[in-house]
């Protein structure tokens, strides 16, 4: 089962860590990440091993009230 990144199915990176996924996706900076609804601090991207079907959310600064 692939990953779901911001609602879109995305192939699992190799090796399957969040750091490698982000290197492949190159999201616009700055951004922050949640995995399965839990915040993942930047400092542990390299330790964050991804599992089949994980939901990754990448968020950016946006207008807000």
């Amino acid at each position: 089962m692939p990953l779901i990144v911001n609602g879109h199915t995305t192939p699992m990176p190799d090796p399957p860590t969040l750091e490698i996924l982000l290197l492949a996706l190159e999201p616009q900076r700055p951004y922050a990440v949640a995995r399965n609804d839990e915040f993942v601090p930047r400092s542990i991207y390299h330790q964050c091993e991804l599992m089949d079907g994980d939901r990754i959310e990448i968020v950016h600064p946006s207008a807000g009230g």
Binding site: G7, Q28, I58, V59, H60, P61, S62, A63, G64, G65
Partner: peptide, 16 residues
């Protein structure tokens, strides 16, 4: 005030 949002399709430029 500011917020956090996922980028919408084609919205990268506006967000940046």
């Amino acid at each position: 005030t500011v917020a956090l949002r996922k980028q919408i399709e084609g919205g990268a430029k506006a967000g940046e």
